[in-house]
Amino acid sequence: MSTIGYKDWAVDMADVGAIYPFQGWEVAMTVVGVAFWIGWHIIQFRSESAELEAARKSGDPEAIKKAIDRY
């Protein structure tokens, strides 16, 4: 068994194509990739919303003035 389809390199390189693991599963891997990408946006959006809401409510006027002056 070899995940890349070759158990040894006793081959002519002119005849060799893909050598990545789990050939034949490209569509499934793409689905995983899309899920990872979309999932990231969902998690990041929720996290940012919570962070912005917390920041909106925690405004200390003096700290805000200092931040403005600091430019």
Binding site: M1, S2, T3, I4, W9, P21
Partner: peptide, 8 residues
């Protein structure tokens, strides 16, 4: 992930 692949 590379189980069984030739190391050399």
């Amino acid at each position: 992930v590379l189980w069984g692949a030739p190391s050399s």
